[in-house]
Design a protein around this nucleic acid. Structure first.
Lengths: 515, 515
DNA sequence: GTGTTGGCTACCTGCCGACAA
DNA sequence: TTGTCGGCAGGTAGCCAACAC
């Protein structure tokens, strides 16, 4: 694996392959030793024909070349990023709009931060998308652990051109020890932020029929749309709105009828037709920092019938996911994944601190009460309560001792049949976690600027912090009214069964048993 | 790998997983020794919940169980097939319609026959579909040869629900030697047959506009549609036609205008809208054995812009393809692939005899003239002529000594810029192959009924056959007029450059150097 | 023989307030 | 506050033959 050290000169890079290849080499070799790799600056971007020259770069890298102009790795990476941006292949998607579509519970990891990656969860996403579970045709990867500590090298936001379905692409770099952590500059991707100026409406039959327009909820119109000139008869304006792909849509916004109401008329049906919206689908509007209106689409679950790709069999997809991770883990080279928040049953890239806290910071046991957040109909959050009824491996043969969905649970409310009866430790809130780590979400949003060591210190601070804080503002960013005002005493009462109070009070600083 | 032998009792099989799992186990273990596996007949089909019991079958198989009722493997496989058919998950697609959509040059291998599988070609299909070549992030699979002899275990025809794009799913079983060949009963899938009652028309602007209907070419209407009652004023009838998904469409067929012509009016625009057809796309009609009308769609190339899947990164897809094949090859277990004839640059599952003949039966050299079939605009065949200008590895690093596209060629006609400048030996016709193997297509259609040994014998017969036949009827099944009447002398003159005549006449029986 | 166009309905799209939940 | 409906224009879908090429 180790190759001759020395400066590298890269001349021929395909426009498309270039960045991935170079990053790949950068990271896979950087880790092995701390040599500073030097690249030649004046990349020659050229398109090679026919795919027949796949080995060229490889060859050049192996043979090495001259150096003129020394740059640090960081500078080189910035250059690469510029290449990427100027290539114009894809415009970046508005982050707030993406998050609005993703829903209030979805946060993406920061570039440079550490995460746990769960192949099992990734495989589940494939299973949902292809409608086929992993079968026994899929080989075991004995060297692939059930979780992989990775550093996040890249996160890009995407939306399907056809359906507007949102997803994220991430490049993950498996790590073996803290020495592997590399300070990655923030290339400008902002932390996950959920927009505050936001509304979401599930479309009615009238909204989607050809008979009329769109009935705008009064609050939404008053909060988001530019103020109408009510001296007009009737008050009217033209709204120009952009979607995820930066297409513009113009709607006539009018305030009329008896009683008066806000409507979108001209232009609306074109939009509905183009996006193929049906009653039950939802549209959402947000206002960005420049006060421009953006809109997104969330399709009803029924439409996510997950057309099986005609490209790859479901088996090959499962294998692809596992083999890619296994190869990356063995070589400590980065690999690329897609994360589909709305299709995926639960996130399989978990922030480092969130995982550690849940696994080492809490004593979970059968009978314990917990709470867990779910998204409501209209894109709000709601907490459901339940009890842990078992702790066991989800798949003891393939993934023994995995924490992935190792908690069997029962929900308090009936009619939670559609909810998972297995959850992962980091998904739930327990009395302990609430006391010790009052404000999980806001902590996690802080970027891990100084890398692994910093994180470790921070983590230990949290764990060993001797005092107990009462949680505040766990409602998150959404301005929506929710049940979260019953936080503090009332919630904690719900969480604590009498027999557990004792246990709660005797909670002791937890030892980190991994090292 | 080897596990305890003995009868197996299977009780819990998910409706979906069951067949794949069982076939997997059947084949992966059958090869290792010739024990006859016995299954219990009264399968209990039950749906397991949540995917949490993936290991159940595995466990049961390992521990073994009681036996009541002994069946041969063949009988069990028939039973499995019945289960599959009665499951009603998907109706089988009409084979002739599928082949009509696939085009005249596409043939699928017979179930039970032997083929060469080329991972390189499969990877190319992925590259085309995802618009991304394989990058260096993709590991090498040193144990995966560039071609794999496989037995075909299953072939099913499919069509994308959204686009009607056709593709085939095949299950391939890698073989090590002829002893591995297993007589597989023909479960009723007919050999590839291209329909004779067929027409195909590229849609004009008028055909797809909202202004009118569809103008039916006279010959097509007279050959395919039920005869009109020309005593009516005007002659009219209602056509009921089925598409690939077995949806029915009704069109009003009328013969009117001045001059008189055949038109489809009422119902046509609904069809165009539903399939989202545009000028340049093609529709095709066939009449099946019951004289029922069927219709299919072929989209213009421009529309095959291959939307990148939001499920899996292109890298993971490439890895998935290679890892699946590598794993199957190592374990001699079956694996599943999708073959997209119209997206794919060339077929990567090549009939055994076709490959052997081209590689061992012909002396290819630089400067040699050859012919190669291409599909014409209107779904006919046409031969293009060219010259071999080089023989070299397409990808010497990853796939050294592969025959895949190892011929560099130049085409006689200018304006063949879009044609590949590399082809594989089995794709071309050379003077030798024409003399020795006059009627390639019809030979290949004969199923390899007696397996490997039979094939081998047949193959040797062909190779050693001492006489020369003049090729006849290479036009194929299509009733279309084509250039193929210039077969025999004229073609052979085209193929032979003067300096090659000598070579041609001295062609000697070729030794099979592989064993 | 067939692609496009102008002419001519008939229907459907889409804006409006009424009405009711 | 907002979902659906009847009423009513006006635009377009869609059938026809005329007219190229």
């Amino acid at each position: 694996m180790r190759e001759a050290h020395g400066p590298i000169r890269i001349r021929h890079v395909t426009h498309r392959m270039g960045i991935a290849v170079m990053l790949n080499r950068l990271f896979s070799r950087r880790i092995l030793d701390s040599v500073r790799w030097v690249f030649h600056k004046d990349y020659v971007i050229s398109q090679v024909g026919e795919g027949g020259h796949m080995g060229c770069l490889e060859e050049k890298v192996k043979t090495g070349g001259l150096v003129s102009g020394a740059h640090t790795l960081l500078e080189e990476m910035k250059l690469l990023k510029e290449m990427q941006d100027h290539s114009g292949v894809r415009k970046s998607i508005n982050s707030e709009l993406w998050h609005a579509c993703a829903g209030p519970l979805v946060t993406l990891p920061q570039v440079g931060s550490l995460v746990y990656y769960f192949p099992q969860g990734h495989s589940e996403q494939v299973a949902v998308s292809t409608n086929r579970m992993a079968t026994s045709q899929i080989p075991n990867y004995p060297n692939l652990p059930s979780q992989l500590v990775c550093q996040v090298h890249n996160v890009t936001l995407h939306a399907d051109k056809e359906t507007d379905e949102i997803y994220a692409q991430m490049s993950l770099q498996p790590l073996n020890s803290e020495k592997d952590v590399f300070p990655i500059p923030d290339f400008g991707l902002k932390p996950s932020r959920h927009p505050s100026e936001f509304f979401c409406k599930t479309l009615t039959a009238s909204d989607t029929s050809t008979h009329g327009g769109f009935s705008v909820p009064r609050r939404a119109a008053e909060k988001l749309f530019p103020q109408l000139d009510y001296s007009m008869q009737p008050p009217t304006q033209e709204l120009v709105v952009r979607d995820l792909h930066d297409n513009t849509w113009t709607f006539r916004h009018i305030y009329r009828g008896q009683p008066k109401r806000h409507l979108l008329t001209t232009g609306w049906s074109t939009f509905v037709g183009a996006k193929r919206l049906r009653a039950g689908d939802a549209v959402l509007f947000i206002r960005d920092e420049k006060s421009q209106l953006l809109l997104g689409v969330r399709r009803a679950n029924r439409q996510q019938t997950a057309l099986p790709s005609s490209v790859l069999s479901a088996d090959s997809m499962h294998i692809g996911v596992l083999a890619a991770a296994a190869h990356a883990a063995a070589n400590r080279s980065p690999f690329t994944i897609f994360y589909n928040p709305r299709a995926c049953p639960s996130e399989f890239v978990v922030p480092f601190a969130k995982y550690r806290k849940s696994v080492y910071g809490t004593q979970l046991s059968v009978g314990m009460r917990f709470g867990m957040m779910f998204e409501t109909e209209e894109s709000g959050k709601r907490r459901y309560m339940g009890t842990i009824v078992g702790i066991s491996d989800l798949d003891p043969l393939r993934w023994p001792c995995s924490k992935w969905r190792n908690l069997q649970v029962e929900w308090d409310e009936t009619g939670c049949g559609e909810k998972q009866n297995r959850v992962s430790p980091w998904e739930i809130e327990t009395p302990e976690s609430l006391f010790i780590f009052p404000s999980l979400t806001s902590s996690l949003k802080r970027p891990l600027q100084s890398g692994f060591l910093g994180a470790q210190t921070e983590w230990e601070n949290w764990v060993k912090r001797p005092f107990i804080r009462i949680p505040e503002n766990l409602n998150g960013d959404l301005p929506y009214p929710s049940t979260s005002n019953l936080w503090s005493e009332q919630l904690i009462k719900m969480l604590i069964k009498p027999q557990n109070v004792n246990h709660l009070l005797t909670v002791s600083p937890v030892q980190d048993s991994t090292r």
